[in-house]
Design a protein around this nucleic acid. Structure first.
Lengths: 150, 150
DNA sequence: GACATATATTTGCCTTGACAAATAAACTTA
DNA sequence: TAAGTTTATTTGTCAAGGCAAATATATGTC
């Protein structure tokens, strides 16, 4: 049995955030699957970051996508097995990995960008440009307020 | 090793939602712990709903807090063990439970409300009343857009 | 250089939540 | 009423992520 909610009058901010995030993730995974990409939302984020920012270390990647280091190791295992990326040795620092997209991975990255763009556009379709910026701004301010709670 | 992010220029909506939600949950659990309440965010939501809406069935509760039915069973186990709530038989429907707060649970509920109010106030302290309403409105519209994607 | 400290990656352990199957009990309909 | 369908709860299984420990390597200090 799962939940088919009926967003009541005034849900609190926490509940709203959970709902919207969950629905966005679901939409994103659906869109990925529809494009023939077999990727979880987390894996999508990892590949997108690599495509946008280029090769980087695993810990850097973990920080960038807000994922625990241990969890990152396991996601990299999966993505390497699927031949989306490669672990290369770092030239100067032998502790560090250089994670880079394979040719296959790079070839898919455009599809990722397209999927992402479609879902985000669908999600925000009822918001004007101004409202989208405001939403982002408000979320940023809430995040800051929570982080430096003085 | 965990993540101490540096929210870059323009994070996408999905990332922002995850960040804000995670931080809010963290804050909430911290505040609960500081008030001597040993409760996860999920457990907090369950008790708060019960306090606000009164006794209800487990499946109703699950729908209300957006939790899977199986997960709800296990949360109820824990909360019952801690003596915050009770499973009572439903008078008309023998399939159904009537979940109600114990005296101890009811006694704590005011603290929950206070914790919640403090954290939400802190989170939104840099937003005006108007902006808070807009944020809620935008999130609601995004949610609807994602649900009925036509 | 030796030693203490910090960082990167991996692994083990644990909790959570989703999903599906199993029961039990209503409800619907012929 | 009997059969089929829906709903409520519980349980098993699984994947994901957080945390801590282990290991390897780098960096800073004396």
């Amino acid at each position: 049995m799962n939940t088919q909610p009926s967003l009541s009058a005034t849900e609190s901010l926490g509940v709203m955030l959970s709902l919207v995030r969950a629905e966005l993730v679901r939409s994103m995974e659906e869109e990925l699957a529809a494009s023939g990409l077999d990727l979880s939302y987390t894996q999508f984020l990892i590949l997108k970051k690599l495509a946008r920012l280029g090769p980087m270390s695993a810990s850097n990647l973990a920080r960038t996508v807000e994922l625990d280091g241990g969890a990152m190791t396991r996601q990299l295992d999966q993505l390497e097995r699927k031949d989306y990326l490669r672990r290369c040795p770092h030239e100067q620092d032998r502790r560090t990995l250089r994670i880079e997209l394979t040719e296959a991975g790079a070839a898919k990255s455009q599809q990722l960008t397209d999927c992402s763009a479609r879902v985000l556009e669908a999600a925000q379709r009822s918001l004007s440009e101004t409202e989208r910026n405001q939403l982002h701004d408000y979320l940023t301010r809430v995040l800051h307020a929570l982080r430096d709670k003085n």
